Amino acid sequence: MAAFGTVFTPEMIISRFNNNSWSTPEIVATDSISLHPGAHVLHYSSTCFEGLKAFRHADGGIYTFRMEKNVARLAQSSQLLALPGFDKAMLSKMILDIVSRYAADVPQPPGSMYIRPTHIGTEASIGKAAAPSLESMLYVLLSPVGDYFAGGAKPLRLLLEDNARCAPHMGMVKSGGNYASALQPIMKARASVQADQVLFCPNGDVQETGAANFLLIDGNEIITKALDSSFLHGITRDSILTLARDRGMTVSERELTVDELLERAAKPGTEAALSGTAAVLTPVGTLIHGGKEYQVGSGVAGATTNALRQALNDIQWGKAEDKHGWLTKVC
């Protein structure tokens, strides 16, 4: 089976910003993009993107999940990167139009259609290191995907790193540069201690991993960092916290130190997990810090993690009531 995110539909939808206006979105071949080698994005990283999914329900209907949240976050990222602003209704229609066109390619559960809206600066100018791109390209790419963890999600090993994932003022921007800055620490962690990911904890403040938000589950309480500009405001994170409140759990969005994390993690029954669009909610079994390994609870996926993951999946696949209005019907 092909690796997650490596298979694409043959077409995508695109709009270009030139001369202070957006072109009418059009469907083009996926491999049709051409960029001037001096394009702003290639030199000054004026790029942001989103990741959301469309799901096939038992009645054959196709639904996106929390699309408006992803569209709003891309608009925010574009603003923070000084990229041209776009009409959120235009992008929403672009997403629905291209997903509808490839509705037959949306896999059955547990698969889905991964949707990647992307916005890049295209102005050909290598003199704009301290100025924004006045031209840009907004497109929506589709990738049919299977279960991110075929055969089941094994508990992850996280190395706690006393550094930030990216520049603090850039954390809430979903930009390629943030992932690039986290790559070397993650590679080193895999090679040195066989960690699956790095949990970035600058000055002892537990934040996020290279590609997911972090949640600590202690009995009936979920603890996660309060929202600020230093890390990504995950939509899956928000969904899981909402479902936890629905179950009567206490949600504590606050500062969490490394010392408190390691102390709580040692308690029987404690769970930890990573939340994100691709993996939904993935258990964490081991924390590595200061040359020592700390088992989280029993070291395996806990009952609360599994229940919250299943609750979210059931809504996405139409097996449970969508009480929060998270689904948008495509066709």
Score class of each variant (00 low, 15 high):
W317C: 03
L308G: 00
A180Q: 14
A265M: 09
N306F: 00
Y63D: 06
D205P: 01
A226L: 10
N19M: 08
A58R: 11
V300Q: 15
G152Q: 01
S239R: 02
L96F: 13
A307P: 02
L91I: 11
N20E: 06
V330Q: 01
S133N: 14
R254G: 07
E293N: 11
L287C: 05
V330H: 00
T286L: 03
E68V: 04
A130I: 11
R264L: 02
S34I: 03
A89F: 07
L281Y: 05
D105H: 11
E260C: 02
I27T: 14
H57E: 14
L158R: 13
L327H: 12
F8M: 08
L241A: 03
H43N: 12
D322F: 13
A182T: 05
N220W: 06
L42K: 09
A129D: 01
A307W: 05
Q184L: 14
V173K: 04
R116L: 15
H40A: 12
L227H: 12
D259G: 08
M67C: 05
T118M: 13
L287N: 04
M187Q: 15
S112M: 10
A82R: 06
I288C: 09
I126T: 15
M170D: 08
L183M: 09
K292E: 09
I98G: 00
G234H: 10
S252N: 13
E208K: 02
V173Y: 01
Y63L: 05
W317A: 06
R16F: 14
V99F: 03
F4D: 00
G152S: 09
Y179W: 08
H169F: 09
R309G: 03
L183G: 01
E135Q: 10
E293P: 03
H40L: 07
G146V: 14
E271A: 06
P107W: 02
A82Q: 11
T304A: 14
A131E: 08
E293W: 02
V99C: 08
L74R: 01
K174P: 09
N163M: 10
P283G: 10
P110E: 03
M137V: 15
P132T: 04
Q316E: 06
A265G: 10
K93A: 10
K69N: 14
T286S: 12
I222G: 11
I126W: 01
G152A: 09
E161G: 08
D105A: 15
S34F: 01
E123F: 04
A72T: 15
V330Y: 00
K225R: 13
Q310P: 00
A124C: 12
E135N: 02
A265Y: 07
A311F: 15
M113N: 12
G219C: 12
H36I: 05
A2S: 04
T47L: 10
G297H: 08
T209L: 11
I115D: 00
H233G: 15
D162N: 09
E271W: 15
A75D: 10
P168L: 11
W22S: 00
I120M: 03
H40W: 10
G291E: 04
K267A: 14
